[in-house]
Nucleic acid binder design. Structure first.
Lengths: 341, 341
DNA sequence: GGCGATCATGTTGACGTTAACATCGGAGGT
DNA sequence: ACCTCCGATGTTAACGTCAACATGATCGCC
């Protein structure tokens, strides 16, 4: 009793099928598929009709094998946890698509060393022409980064520790903008709730805040440290709220600022009357915080676009631009800042 | 003057190179690369060493061509705008990676018809074995959806309008949970700020809220409509705040709830003393809203996992499960709800 | 009217991998 | 000692596409 094998055509139609139907050679089909001009108008029509009839789809595997290029870029992300990464990824995807490249997501499942190197080694088997790395630097630093040799890479980060082209927001400029805004309002000094020490972006913002204060001859208060999460902002806020000296705080991102605002409300300290707060990122919700948050807007779209440009440049021209790309930020004044009482 | 062509070996080493170095046939290298057991331990070592030496990486294009499978799934997303999509995508990426599949991002650049069908036709050229669709239904409905024939598809949405398997959060159960929570606290009725009419998820939540009220013999207040954004929540909140009849509001997502809270604060209506508010999603920040938001937690992780499971099942077994998958939600009580004054 | 130029189209082979089959040597059974 | 079976390894061909080259027809020009 021979089991009747379902004769399901698993593969789709190929050029050969189209060619047969149109009565031409495979090569002609190829030419039509690739929009070459040296095909007779009639023939082209006939081929296109045949393609439609059989539902032809070019096989990208065969194409990639033949051409040695995948027209695809990989993006290594550490979860899509953070607001910034998400937005940047979005911009990358848009830019890549526009440039005719597909985007391959290579998630790093947890923060462990092995997960990171796991992602990197998986990379070797991926069908990508280049990679954009979207995870914070420290996670990489120690890892024996087994990046496949000769694979173009662009890093989105604020570290200068790489041999790869770097694109990022100008953290220092943004932090200066925030700090100066508060000082200009008349505050004696500005406190700072920073991001995790492992983040270069956080370190840059912190350093620049510090620098701005000393440039102006102001005392530098002790730094509070959060982990980017709103919860950690709340924790820090509870400490700050009880300190009557605190009249102005620069928070390293909007999410932490949200938690900080909650802590201040809880303790009955009015914003901005008692305490002024400036965030960083300008995520959509910041305008709807209570009170609406003054913050530093960074253009994730621009960062995404620039990193794709840099990567595709590397892929197609083989050119490295080791000159880091810095994207400027912008101060957005809302209601969470005011002169000291 | 013949320009010296840089003899850059653009292609990486292939199995043949490894085979030559290890003194075996290509097939043996293939067996080692795929972890087959029928290879002598010594030989395997020799091959592995050779691989390391030349820096061998399997060429996934050749593999895909040979096997007819890409081990890759596509995800069609309408920007990564919404919190929910982002989280679901994250879960999908994690689940897919765990199952050994790569994830291809297929962004829909704008809401226009052509952008959507653009994404779909691009799909035909993508190296994917199946697709998960993460865009709201209405955008698809009218479109001549030119989905490649025979390509496995899973839709993450609450519509039943598809021929494809569907996975989504149990919107109706969540909305009922929210509404009942408020009624149980003693509120006479519950107002509703819904999502855009184009969203099936929003429609489900609305319908279930309505149903719950009528089941309990309560009056059904007029519906307010937002677009998921915090800004639209603020707009709606300004209307609600001036209405003294409003003592309880069920908001269709947390972001809009944030804006609504701001509007209530602005008008001096205390939460929860004057007005109780329940959100939907339980995004991380909800616990740090002012006051911390009572909300409906939906498991994006589960939705992502289940949709990947469904898709891979379809890919590997060819089985469709037209039975929609519904993922349960959970009420998380915080400080934004209380009995009426 | 002959000759090369130009253009549409066809033929061949290679990209790197692996399924299917072939081969070969030794272990085990009678 | 002979035969079988099994496991390790090699050989061949094919997946779908496209560059490179080959062919043959048409055209214009001296």
């Amino acid at each position: 009793m021979t089991a009747e094998q379902t004769p399901v055509r698993r593969r789709g139609p190929s050029m050969a099928d189209v060619a047969r139907l149109a009565g031409v050679s495979g090569q002609t089909v190829s030419r039509v598929a690739n929009g070459r001009h040296n095909v007779d108008a009639d023939t082209r029509e006939r081929v296109l009709a045949a393609m439609r009839e059989v539902g032809y789809r070019p096989n990208s595997a065969a194409r990639a094998l033949r051409n040695g290029r995948f027209r695809s870029i990989g993006v290594i992300v550490f979860e899509l946890s953070s607001f910034g990464n998400t937005r940047t990824l979005d911009a990358i995807a848009a830019a890549a698509t526009t440039r005719g490249y597909a985007v391959n997501l290579l998630p790093v499942l947890d923060a462990s060393q092995e997960a990171v190197s796991g992602a990197f080694s998986r990379l070797g088997e991926q069908a990508v022409d280049g990679v954009i790395i979207l995870i914070e630097a420290h996670t990489l630093d120690d890892a024996e980064v087994p990046l496949p040799d000769g694979l173009p890479v662009v890093v989105v980060d604020s570290s200068a520790h790489y041999d790869y082209p770097i694109v990022d927001t100008d953290q220092a400029q943004g932090a200066r903008l925030a700090t100066e805004h508060l000082l200009d309002l008349g505050h004696q000094t500005v406190w700072h709730l920073g991001g995790p020490p492992s983040s270069f972006a956080a370190a840059r913002r912190l350093r620049s805040w510090q620098q701005t204060l000393t440039d102006r001859g102001r005392p530098v208060p002790p730094v509070l440290v959060g982990d980017w999460s709103a919860g950690s902002g709340y924790e820090a806020g509870r400490q700050l709220a009880d300190n009557p000296d605190v009249s102005a705080v620069f928070v390293a991102n909007d999410q932490m600022a949200l938690g900080l605002l909650r802590a201040l409300h809880e303790r009955g300290r009015a914003v901005p009357e008692d305490v002024s707060v400036v965030g960083f990122d300008d995520q959509e919700e910041a305008a709807q915080f209570w009170p609406p948050l003054t913050t530093i807007r960074q253009s994730f779209a621009e960062v995404g676009r620039r990193s794709v440009d840099a990567l595709i440049n590397e892929i197609q021209a083989g050119e490295h631009h080791h000159q880091p790309v810095s994207v400027a930020t912008e101060l957005v004044v809302r209601s969470s800042t005011a002169p000291p009482r």
